[in-house]
Amino acid sequence: MYEIQELTAQDEWLEAFPVMHELRTHLDENAYLELLYKMADEGYKMFALFNDTNILAVTGVIIRTNFYDGRHVFVYDLVTYPSERSKGYGELLLTYIEQWAKEHGCEKLALDSGVQRIDAHRFYENRMGFGKFSYGFKKMIDMK
């Protein structure tokens, strides 16, 4: 039996770190917590899929409003332990988040995915019904 819970306390966030680190490999535990506290202050929510007491997958989301998507849930993170992939856990989490979004007055789910993540794109489009609507662009700002 699987259960999805919102993670709200530091000890829960630390328990989720090994899974999140699979996606956010550039973060060590301290940087992860520092950013997570700031993100939580801005409305970021983290949810985990558990099998008994083990976290198998996590997602991080935020409710946002803008001109092109209206009130929506933006999915920042969705990751499953590599050994647990292709078992439907990502689908369970995104389906849960879709219902959560509906309960919070949101009509859309939005996310970005790195261009190299071909398998993830196939999952989002073919399994979860997402469509490609734009290209994302980034520019690093010289902080000197």
Rank of each mutant, 00 (worst) to 15 (best):
A48V: 02
Y32P: 06
T25A: 15
Y32S: 13
N30I: 13
Y37A: 14
W13E: 05
D41E: 14
F50I: 03
W13R: 08
T53M: 09
H21K: 14
N30L: 12
M39V: 09
A16L: 01
A57R: 00
Y37C: 11
A40G: 04
E34D: 10
E15Q: 15
H21P: 02
Y32K: 03
I55D: 03
D52L: 14
P18Y: 03
A31K: 10
L56C: 08
D41Q: 13
E34G: 08
L14K: 11
I55M: 09
V19E: 02
K38F: 05
L49Y: 01
A31D: 07
T59H: 01
G60P: 03
L35K: 13
A40E: 12
R24G: 03
G60A: 14
Y44I: 04
M39G: 04
M39H: 11
Y32I: 07
Y44F: 12
M20R: 05
W13P: 01
L27G: 01
N54W: 07
E15K: 15
T59V: 07
L35M: 13
D52H: 12
L49P: 03
A40T: 11
I55C: 07
G43Q: 00
T53W: 08
E29I: 15
V58R: 09
W13Y: 11
W13I: 00
A57D: 05
N54L: 11
M46P: 01
E42K: 11
Y44H: 15
H21S: 13
N30W: 08
N54F: 07
E15T: 12
L33T: 02
N51H: 15
F17D: 00
L23P: 00
Y37V: 13
D28T: 01
L35V: 09
L49Q: 03
K45L: 05
G60E: 14
L35R: 15
M39Y: 09
A40W: 07
M46Y: 10
